[in-house]
Design a protein around this nucleic acid. Structure first.
Length: 944
RNA sequence: GCGGAUGUGGCGGAAUUGGCAGACGCGCAUGGUUCAGGUCCAUGUGGGGGCAACCCCGUGGAGGUUCGAGUCCUCUCAUCCGCACCA
């Protein structure tokens, strides 16, 4: 692509070329910087305005999902959302709102650490460099950010508060009575005073110090637990399930991964499952996004059923279908189930042990795949007693039952459950029908009605008439039976209604260097103790060797890099009972930690006494919606679940503890689409640099060799990146901004074709020409009133642009402005532009093309920036059309169009329609059976 | 399998409550300006038929509701995304 833009003598001297655009843009960016145009005042604190200017301004908070500072810089796909929020932010400023808009950096975490390892530099250094580079690239786009509010999660002043939030979580528990988080100290007080019983049972008074500590540690929102993790010794870290391949290797580098129990920090997000679910109702998020969160939380209502195990204990199962209880022919427990830790009949013990050992080795992924192919399982030798019939059924263990869900055990109802059915068939277990399938079900399977169970090809999982109970529930609808059975279980004390969730607690430890140190120390008995708030921040120690510990030995214990900072780890502190030696926690927090609350720090970035001042929080977050929070949050759909769920969780905890004033952080959320681009691969399937591909006769060649074209998300891997810098040089930042938004609605993916940018570039030139004479540089504006139709077009445009920006339909807002320019040309030809048209046009364009907007606004004679100029207010009387063209149909087919005054009465409209020669001709001799008249819209003659 | 979305010209897309399908732009065609070029200007551009006035067809497919359907309902096909042995 050529970005050469040398002006030639043939061009008019004041044409709006890329060169001129760049000059204007650089000038205005400098002025904005000098004048502090985008600095946004707070109601109080060090960012407050002394003159009280803020008082009458409503707050608007536009937020972008902040990026991690990558080393490779931006391509044109990255800033799409940033430009979108910037347009809305500018629009809101022009409507008199005090707008909070800034950009921070998600600076801790794996990408930054990996980049540092690759370049051999300290992450501190590379992160700083990368942030500087991204700031430069973003600044060129003319984004109106308040730079004073920018934060990076790796800044000590920032992560001091991340650590503070961790302490809040550690020092809190979820009080079921209050249905909210409460300080553990409050619980201790209540226990000491005898006002409460210990949450886990027992007598508080009879417990010693250690027992009491255990009770409290068992309810904290941040707690230590032995959990099974994917441990990769070669990478020196634990991995998420998604980072492990089907072969049990690490996705990064193909190293072996082992499942092993590890003592890790966990966050008790499950305590908030219902509130996270219910809170969604009040949010302006897309249905698909809400569905993803609901799905992830995975609430299902059902029943707990307790089976007595012959010989003593009880095991509990969870089922969503208590109505099928009479169809139980076996019970299955997960291989990890504690029941199997006890004594088993000798003739089965070895087989069970072998099965459990095998399951323990496999990753979750491998287990899924293996089980999908062929159900496996073994008999434990134990039997369970049916709680209603007293019948004995075998207890098996199988890896299709997961320890993490429900109670880790299921009742086997093969006739009513697909998995139980497959399992029963594979292992030859009995199948007993429990719901009568409808006739259609048999018909679809080519079976006669009421075919015997042995002929069924699969389970019937629907509802219907209950059968097979031997009396008590037979013949009744299964939904009713379900309620009945739950009641019976409750009466007998062998179960009851229960709710299960897919959501699990959040694994919070990382064996990494580049993250927030966890503000915990361990005493000589290895008990975790909070570092007092007054001793924060705990600064990440400077390490020469910050790479993860790698060890090919699978049994090697994970050692976080921070363990090497021995001077830092061993510490003497006074935690209230005199100076003592402690050992610091050496795991760090996950990358999610900083991103869980950065939007709160933007509000009050330099406050060193509080996370955020309550008055400032209230001012910005009160919001307009029911839940409150950020007015608009824009980012990629890849954060639909984890980031948004974790952030909502922390926000709710902070809300419960009184540190923030709203129950939800993000009132309105919007997922922007991706920028796609053509990618080309050679005959070996390798991608080639897209910018070097040439087209000849509809085929594509790279280096003279034919290549295949496909489309995909712009980026390094497809070698199809286009940088904003190159586009800005060739067309200017305003053209880039306009083009990104013009391509498609904000939530849609859009294909990038650099050649298409000439459309918006030509449009900007036409706007320029409408205000400035290309030959003389003089203003081309007249003080004459605009022609009536142009004036109406102006008000119509203002009306639709306002609505479109609010709905984030930027593409149609831009096309409305294009239409206005076309109408201007049609109305005045080569003549000067009426002043009001020029002013409104420039003001409406300014949110989209802020540099050109400022330039033209100034040339029009304004001393003040257009950034705070009022957005044009249309007069409703002029928005409504004066003349309308009404469609005349005969039998629903368009036959004529008639122009009439708006609001013409039905009868007159019908008469006007009949007067049309074409219509008169068609109606001549025909029987008009009905006439439909919609004023200002159409007339439809229905003829026989 | 479950959940969510999306299908409109050569391309990106537009179309309050059901009311003139294809706004706006790219591309393409023709003409102009220019020594030349196009990141310039003008006009045209859904498909088919006709000299023309006009006519027919047309929003993935098939039905339906309606005076009237891109829009509502039923079925169906295709594509994309998320989750996935969740009992």
């Amino acid at each position: 692509m050529s970005t050469e833009t040398t002006a030639t003598p043939a061009l008019p001297p004041y044409r709006y070329t890329a060169e001129l655009a760049n000059e204007i843009e650089e000038r205005w960016r400098r002025r904005w910087q000098e004048r502090g145009t985008y600095l946004t005042p707070n109601p109080t604190g060090d960012l407050a305005e002394p003159n009280g200017w803020l008082a009458e301004r409503r707050a608007f908070y536009a937020l972008d999902m902040f990026p991690y500072p990558s080393g490779s810089g931006l391509h044109v796909g990255h800033p799409l959302g940033y430009i979108g929020t910037d347009v809305l932010a500018r629009f809101k400023r022009m409507q008199g709102f005090n707008v909070l808009h800034t950009m921070g950096y998600d600076a801790f975490g794996l990408p930054a650490e990996r980049y540092a390892v690759d370049t051999g530099q300290h992450p501190e250094v590379t992160t700083r460099q990368n942030i500087a580079n991204m700031r430069r690239q973003l600044a060129r786009l003319g984004l109106g950010h308040d730079r004073r509010r920018s934060v990076a999660t790796a800044d000590v002043e920032f992560y001091r508060w991340t650590q503070w939030i961790f302490l809040q979580l550690f020092n809190s528990w979820y009080d079921p009575e209050a249905d909210a988080a409460r300080p553990v100290a409050e619980l201790v007080e209540a226990l000491d005073a005898g006002r409460r019983e210990p949450p886990g049972g027992g007598s508080w008074a009879d417990m010693d110090g250690e027992q009491r500590a255990a009770v409290l540690d068992g309810v904290r929102l941040a707690y230590l637990d032995d959990v099974t993790v994917n441990w990769c010794p070669a990478l020196g870290t634990v991995l998420a399930n998604e980072e492990v391949t089907a072969d049990g290797l690490s996705e990064q580098g193909n190293f072996p991964v082992y499942r092993r129990p590890l003592r890790q920090w966990m966050m008790r997000i499950t305590a908030y499952a219902d509130r996270l679910l219910d809170g969604l109702d009040d949010l302006e998020w897309s249905d698909s996004l809400k569905a993803m969160q609901r799905n992830w939380i995975g609430r299902s209502e059902g029943a707990r059923v307790e089976f007595e195990v012959a010989g003593g204990e009880r095991i509990s199962v969870f089922t969503t279908r208590p109505d099928t209880l009479y169809g139980v022919t076996f019970v299955v427990v997960a291989p990890e189930h504690p029941l199997l830790d006890g004594d088993l009949p000798a003739e089965h013990a070895d087989a069970v042990a072998a099965y459990r050992a095998r399951a323990a080795r496999l990753s979750d992924r491998q287990r899924e795949i293996g089980a999908a192919e062929e159900p496996s399982g073994v008999f434990t030798g134990l039997e369970a007693i049916h709680p209603l019939t007293g019948e004995r059924v075998p207890i098996l263990t199988a890896d299709y039952v997961l320890m993490q869900y429900g109670s880790g055990a299921v009742m086997g109802v093969p006739a009513g459950d697909t998995r139980d059915f497959a399992f029963a068939r594979a292992l030859g277990l009995p199948i007993r029908p429990v719901i009568r399938p409808p006739a259609a079900w048999f018909a679809e399977r080519g079976l006669p009605p009421d075919a015997p169970i042995d002929d069924w090809p699969d389970a019937y999982t629907g509802h219907g008439e209950s059968i097979g109970s031997g009396g008590p529930t037979d013949g009744r609808p299964s939904q009713e039976v379900a309620r009945e059975i739950v009641r019976q279980l409750e009466e007998r004390g062998t179960g009851g209604a229960q709710v299960a969730y897919k959501l699990r607690d959040w694994l919070f430890s990382r064996q990494r260097y580049w993250g927030e140190p966890i503000p915990i120390v361990f005493d000589e008995r290895d008990r975790p103790l909070a570092v007092p708030e007054s001793q924060l921040p705990i600064v990440l120690p400077d390490l020469e060797d910050f790479a993860p510990n790698v060890d090919a030995d699978e049994s090697a214990d994970p050692v976080p890099p921070l363990a090497r900072a021995t001077d830092w780890v061993e510490v003497e502190l006074d935690l209230g009972d005199g100076p003592k030696r402690y050992r610091r926690e050496t795991n760090t927090m996950p990358q999610w930690a900083g991103s869980c609350w950065y939007y709160l720090r933007y509000l009050d970035p330099s406050n060193d006494r509080a996370l955020v001042d309550p008055e400032i929080d209230r001012y910005w977050m009160a919001g307009s919606g029911t839940a409150g929070g950020v007015d608009l949050y824009v980012g990629g759909v890849e954060h639909a679940v984890l980031h948004l769920l974790y952030a909502r969780f922390w926000h709710k905890v902070l809300y419960d503890l009184g540190h923030v004033g709203t129950p939800e952080p993000f009132q309105r959320l919007f997922n922007q689409g991706y920028v796609q681009a053509a990618a080309y691969s050679d005959e070996r399937g390798f991608y080639v640099e897209a910018s070097e591909v040439v087209e000849r006769d509809g085929r594509w060649y790279h280096d003279g060799r034919p290549v295949q074209r496909s489309y995909g998300k712009m980026g390094k891997s497809l070698k199809n990146s286009v940088t904003p810098d190159a586009i800005i040089e060739g067309y200017g930042a305003d053209a880039l901004r306009l083009y990104e938004l013009f391509l498609a609605p904000l939530d849609q993916d859009r294909p990038w074709e650099t050649q298409g940018i000439v459309g918006v570039s030509r449009f900007l030139q036409r706007v320029w020409r409408a205000v400035v004479d290309e030959d003389t540089g003089e203003l081309r504006v007249s003080d004459d009133a605009p022609p009536r139709e142009l004036e109406r077009a102006l008000h119509r445009t203002a009306d639709s642009v306002r609505r479109d920006i609010d709905r984030l339909h930027f593409n149609t807002a831009i096309s409305a402005l294009m239409e206005l320019v076309n109408e201007l040309r049609a109305a005045v030809g080569d003549g000067p532009t009426p002043r009001v048209v020029a002013e409104w046009l420039v003001a409406m364009l300014a949110p989209f093309a802020p540099h050109l907007g400022e330039e033209l606004w100034e040339r029009l004679g304004h001393a003040e920036s257009v950034v705070y100029a009022p957005f044009p207010e249309p007069d409703p009387a002029l928005v409504a059309a004066e003349q309308v063209s009404v469609a005349i149909q005969v039998n629903g087919k368009l036959r004529a169009v008639v122009d009439v005054a708006a609001g013409t009465a039905k009868d007159d409209l019908e008469a006007a329609a009949r007067d049309q020669p074409r219509i008169a001709e068609l109606l001549d001799g025909a029987e008009v059976r009905r006439v439909v008249v919609v004023p200002d819209r159409l007339v439809n003659f229905v003829v026989g």
